[in-house]
Design a protein around this nucleic acid. Sequence first.
DNA 1: ATGACGTCCTGCCTGC
DNA 2: TGCAGGCAGGACGTCA
Length: 280
Amino acid sequence: MPELPEVETIRRELKCRITGKRINGCRILRKDIIGYPGPDEFCRGIIDKRILDVSRRAKYLIITLENDKRLIFHLRLSGSLSIIDSAKTDKRNPEELKFARLIIELEDESLVFCEPRVLGRVYLIKNDERPKGLKGFFNLSYEPLSPEYDFLYFKEKIKKRKAKIKSVLLDQMTCAGVGNIYADEALFHANIRPIRRANTLKTEEIFKLLMAIKRVLKKGIEECGTTVSDYRRINGRKGNFQNFLYVYNREGKPCKKCGRMITLTKVGNRSTRYCPGCQK
DNA sequence: ATGACGTCCTGCCTGC
DNA sequence: TGCAGGCAGGACGTCA
């Protein structure tokens, strides 16, 4: 699933491909994925606009258009973005268009938003518009890889929470951009059990956890994300961070550090993997 | 305010 | 073989 490193990879690859291009057409194949405004207004709003920039905030991908308009994508679990030759979008059923929900036609190629499970969304907002479904976007914590996301900031957030640390890490107001994969990995590297209550973590543990979060996110970006099922890069290639996972997707396998079997459990209704030997 | 939990949605996997 | 049912899971709404 696209978390911070996956969305950052998509952003980097997309930015050099589409910046400066003009949007010629818009085909909505499934209305549900347009979060705001309505489908017609959405199309009218982007056609003939030039793309100025591609940026990212947490798991949101932002395409800035002229006239202070922003296209904001959230890929949720299975969403993907790809660029394909416009000639291909006219063919009946090319593999790349399986599950295509939105096709944005550029000058010579098309940006395709695929989303098998139809949970992902795209929003078009002007200036300071704040549509309902996009609440989370305006309530994110600092970026975990930014200098502002320092020990003091992190400690304050963790100390006042009584929920399980895994759930707290998944909270986007606490740890923007972190999802199930990187939460499990960070907790492993910090030697902390996912069910621990956040406010019971010792100062050293909070510090270790912060360092682990930054490290796994950074490494995730360096390896172009984690492909365990749906996630693909713009060109359809896989990420590489799955080769560096210690717990995620490794249930039943021996821990790479201590040899004990990685356990699969549920924390706050989320599947969670940890090593009973390494994580206390 | 906070934590727990149900809901959305559909492809895919499992078991009968 | 085919079908039903369960599962996955990020963000948001609801409830206590």
